[in-house]
Amino acid sequence: MEPYVLDPAGRDIQAEAAALRDAGPAARVVLPGGVEVWSVGDLDLLRRLLADPRVSKDARRHWPAMAGIGEDWPLYLWVAARNMFTAYGTEHRRLRTLVSKGFTARRTEALRPQVRQIAADLVDRLAAGPDVVDVRAGFAYPLPIEVICRLMGVPDDVRPELRRIVDSLFDTTTTPEEAIANQRLLYEILHGLVAAKRATPGDDLTSGLIAARDEGDAGLTEAELVDTLIVMIAAGHETTVNLLDQAITALLTHPDQLRLVTSGERGWSDVIEETLRWQAPVAHLPLRYAVEDLEVGGVTIRRGEAILAGYAAAGRDPAHHGETADRFDVTRPDKTHLSFGHGAHHCLGAPLARIEAEVALPALFDRFPDLALAVPAAELRPVPSFISNGHRTLPVRLR
């Protein structure tokens, strides 16, 4: 069977997910640049793989094809950055331990009042504006950006350009020239941030990482420091932006489900977990690598071959969720998903993302009880990515 060529623009992620499931638990796919990898979208199989110590995220050690990958590949930073996202074994534990200090349960929960104030300010701003707005740009996007920028100590004047560049990392339609230009500008911005924080430290995670680097106890290199900022800032907003976007879309296109929540029959946590299952904010996550030959769903993934985690496919896997897997249903008793990963690389920011959604969604729907889509759902267009699963715009009528 010929490998499946993924659409770089992600124009119908769920249709592709269904096609890949039909191809088997593990299927060969082609990424931009003609790079062939395995896609795994079987929920239970993928969960086992994500926790398997024979599966690495270190391309330099375990992906021979990395030798032929250049900086102009649109996914280059996804595999080449030196941070906890691309680390394996003891290196991963070392880097994750440094970052995890900023995401303890107590510190994360302490952010709830700030999130509540940010959400209140945003709905006030919406209320003061026109009746028809892009709620992704005016609410779903700025809320997590503000939270992560405060956590990281990113100055206001740096944020717009940083946001644009981070968005480009998820755009899998970029040209080789754009990819290189974006990477260089991103590093320029982040090296500037590190220099500024080194000169004037603050009470933020960037300053904490710099202190760990400069004091020398953590063995953190300057490259690891900057690349860690990339993963924290990028992962710190993209998943939550799409979670809010897709949750709002799901509720506005399923009024019966919205009534269950606004009546109190179901909670916002039901909405959040069902959205994470039904529309995984990250559809495909690159990449992992077989440390040795693996028998996966009746096929052999050879040592050194790459694996793409199919979170969108796993969320709607009928082998796990049955014949109603494609239905958005907040009453579903089993909302199992892998949208925040699993195993050693489970997302550190998952509790914070859930807090942001728990605060933001009721803030929006309580303030605008007649909220409705301003265009037919069929006219909503996805962001140009097979990684990020959200909409370019989400026009709504507030009243």
Rank of each mutant, 00 (worst) to 15 (best):
C149R: 00
R150Q: 08
L151S: 03
G153D: 06
G153C: 08
V154S: 01
V154D: 02
P155K: 04
D156P: 00
V158E: 02
R159Y: 03
R159D: 02
R159S: 07
L162N: 04
R163V: 14
V166P: 01
V166Y: 01
F170T: 03
D171F: 00
T172G: 02
T172M: 09
T172A: 10
T172P: 07
T173N: 06
T175L: 12
P176R: 06
E177W: 12
E177H: 12
E178Q: 14
A179M: 05
A181S: 13
A181P: 13
R184H: 13
R184F: 04
R184M: 10
R184D: 07
L185G: 02
L185K: 14
L185P: 00
L185Y: 11
L186M: 15
L186H: 09
G192L: 07
L193K: 08
A196K: 15
R198I: 13
R198S: 14
A199N: 05
T200N: 14
G202F: 14
G202Y: 12
D203V: 13
D203N: 14
D204N: 10
L205Y: 11
T206M: 12
T206P: 09
T206A: 05
A212G: 13
G216L: 10
A218H: 03
G219Q: 09
G219S: 11
L220K: 08
T221A: 10
T221M: 12
A223T: 14
L225N: 06
L225Y: 07
L225P: 00
V226D: 02
V226K: 00
V226F: 06
D227V: 12
D227H: 11
T228Y: 03
T228L: 08
L229W: 04
L229F: 08
I230K: 05
I230V: 15
I230C: 07
V231F: 05
V231N: 02
V231G: 00
M232G: 01
M232Q: 01
I233M: 13
A234I: 09
G236K: 00
T240M: 08
V241A: 04
N242V: 01
L243H: 04
L243V: 04
L244T: 02
L244P: 04
L244S: 03
I248R: 01
T249E: 07
A250I: 12
L251P: 06
